[in-house]
Each structure stands twice: as C-alpha cells, then as structure tokens.
Design a protein around this nucleic acid. Structure first.
Lengths: 202, 202
DNA sequence: CAACCAATAGAACGAGCGTTCTAAAACTCC
DNA sequence: GGAGTTTTAGAACGCTCGTTCTATTGGTTG
C-alpha cells in the first residue's frame, strides 16, 4: 500500500461525507468545488493515488463511479430463534430475513449469522430475552471463546465461555458471580461462536 | 402516499440491491437492463411513481442521482466512557468518534449517543465491561425505561429500569434474580434512556 | 363502445462528466 | 543549484445519461 498525502486523506474524508449525505458519490467537479481545488485533473490525480493505495475503487467512464471498499455496512442472515424450551435446536434452517450490521459493531467475516434469543435461560451469559446474538458458524472452539453449545444429555442449548481442561470441559458463565458447568467433551456439540450481542431496549 | 405497483416494488428492490453491491445508485439504462425493460422512458415512468410515493428521491439532471430515504445506516457520536469508578460522570463531553448504526439495530432518532462501559459495576443490568450502550439524551423517564441515573448521595452512575412509586423511586435491575434499589426522587439525576446495548465478544 | 388511466415504445437533444494531453510550478534530495 | 518527483493548470474530446416529446397498446369502468 502506497503513501497517502494529507490532502488525499482529506479528499477521502470528503467523499465519505458526501456519500453519507447524498446517498451517492460525488463527481470530479463536486470534489473540486468541495476541496477548493482549481482543476478536475487535480482531482483525478489524487483519486489515482487513492486508488493505487486501495482506499477507493473506480469504475472507468462511469459518472459517480466511486466505490469505498471500507463501506461500513453488510448483511448477515437472520436464521431464527434460540431458546431453552426448544430442544435440540441445530439452527441449520433456511434464512428468513437479514440483519444489517456495520463494521463498527462486527468486522465482516465468513459464516456469520444472527439469532434471536427467546426466554431467559441464557441470562447467566448476560444474554436476555429478546436479545440478538451474532454468531460465527464453527464446530470447534478455542479456550475463552463464547460458544453456543448443546449439552447432549440435558438436550439444552446454552451460551457460555468455553475452556478445555484435563478430562473435561468447563463452561463458564459470563457473569462472574455464577459458577461454571463441567462436563465430558463428548457431551458437547458446539454450534458456533458468539461474536456480538445486540439488545434493543423497548 | 400513492399506490405502488408490483413492478415498481421490484424496481425499488433492484435499486437497493444495486446500491449495496456497487456503492452507488444505478443509471436509468442500468435499471432498464436489470429489469428487462425496453425503454429508459419506462424507467423514468416508474421512478416518477416511486418518487411520488416517497420511496425514493431524485436530484434532477444528475447521473445516478437517486437517493433511498430509508437508507439503513447513520452515525451517533461516541461520547466517552461510563463506569462506577468515575464519580459524577455527566457525559456532556466533546464527541471523539462516531459509531455507525443501522436502523435494524436502533431506529434513528434525535439525541442519540453512545458510551463505552468500563468495569463490571453494571453487571446487574446485564451490561458488562466493554459493552457499548446507545442512549437517548433525556432528563425525565417513563415507568419501565432503562435509564442511566446518578445516585446523588452515593455519587455513582447506574443502569436500571425506572419505576415511580408513591414517595419513592424504584430502580430495578434487568436481571430478575436481583432486587431493586429504592431511593428518593430528589436523589436521582437521570442522564438518558438506554435504547440499545451492543457487546462485541473478543 | 367511449372515456380514462396505466403501461409501453422510440428517438433525439443537450448538459453532465470522466478522460487525456501538455505544460509549468513547487518541493525534495543530494 | 540541478535533477527528479510531486502537485498544479487549463482545455478539449467524446461518451454518458437524465430529460422530454410524441405515439401506441392494454386494461378498467360506467
């Protein structure tokens, strides 16, 4: 990635602001006026630098054909509901809707999906009724991951921090006041790793 | 708001999809190809209907001059940190950064701001260290609101559900296992109402 | 069937806009 | 101070694209 001058940084900021304000990118002329430059070729010059630095993309010969690769929004499938009363919820169901997220909240990555929490069974994990959990689909976990795991003998789904210990697995609630659950590694089926929890109050 | 035909609904969906894919709105010609129409004037015809219905806005004579008023993203100021160890945090400070949200998470409204939670003092409210709370600035609360309130005698900030009772105020933790706090109405200073909590796990 | 509105067709005008070329000024580095 | 890089200037070409005008078809209603 190449060097970026302060003026080019300012131009990038101007474009971002313009996009959020207008809903579409500026033309070269609009950038020229906004940046108080004297010529469109100057705009092209700096945009070329920004493009080579990977900060923007341009579609040739298309008006307002600017793209901000770091655009802040993307969508994940809203797969369904997770809750204690639902036995054996292996949520591989079809996607119904989509949840739009921003990179401020969750960095974009493969295998993300969202679930709505029904019931207060996961309150130990500081996840309440009505919360939305954003998860990354994976069947193995590292120590310290917060995972959605199914306890096979109890046939219930739970959100806990995952720790491997000699001969057993420790599932630690997020709330430090509450004690852990210990179980056999074979008694656990990991559905995914929690990457974010979103709670809408009222 | 006027009537919208199925074809116009489809055109709106096409535009939304185009914008999320390209980062800028389509031209009339691109809509024509994408919708398999025969003429640009047909595009104009339907866009006029969509504009009159308030579904889109158009800037005259500007290429790709389409605006989606229901665009999904907006920003709120990131004001700072809230935590128990900080006495009298009346967070009227300057905004440092911004947090980009989507309407899926919080409907846009005036007076929103975001705070980072430092420490575990609000764990009773199911808000943990590192969480981000999105708040609406207001000094009075309705029964059932989750508010950020300062207990003047203890000089501490807390997140609780707010209930007015005869002669006193009840502050109820979100975790139903924990009991409420009762205090004088004069002992409370409401800073704002919590509208969302966002937790990034790792 | 007449009247009316929604939808479809086609073409052409003209301003909008990215692109390119040439040239000069300003700045940096030995 | 000279060579090389970065930044600034200006203008012209030509495709892009919104707009407008006119005309036709289909569907609905009384």
């Amino acid at each position: 990635m190449k060097h970026i001058s302060p003026k080019q940084q300012a131009m990038l900021a101007f474009i971002e602001e313009f996009v959020t304000e207008h809903g579409y990118p500026p033309t070269y002329e609009e950038i020229r006026v906004g940046m108080k430059l004297s010529t469109k070729s100057l705009v092209d010059y700096h945009l070329t630098a920004l493009e080579e630095a990977g900060k923007i993309q341009r579609d040739p010969a298309t008006p307002r054909g600017l793209r901000l690769p770091n655009a802040n929004t993307y969508s994940v499938p809203f797969i369904g509901v997770i809750g204690a009363s639902l036995p054996t919820t292996t949520f591989t169901d079809v996607a119904a809707e989509a949840l739009t997220l921003t990179r401020d909240i969750v960095p974009e990555q493969d295998g993300l999906f969202a679930l709505k929490v029904r019931g207060t069974s996961m309150i130990d994990a500081m996840v309440n009724d009505g919360d939305v959990v954003v998860m990354k689909r994976q069947s193995i976990a590292k120590d310290g991951d917060m995972v959605a795991a199914r306890l096979i003998d109890r046939d219930e789904m739970t959100l806990k921090y995952f720790y491997r210990e000699p001969g057993r697995v420790r599932l630690q609630p997020a709330n430090p006041r509450l004690g852990p659950i210990y179980t056999h590694p074979a008694n656990i089926e990991i559905q995914g790793r929690v990457v974010a929890v979103i709670r809408q109050v009222h």
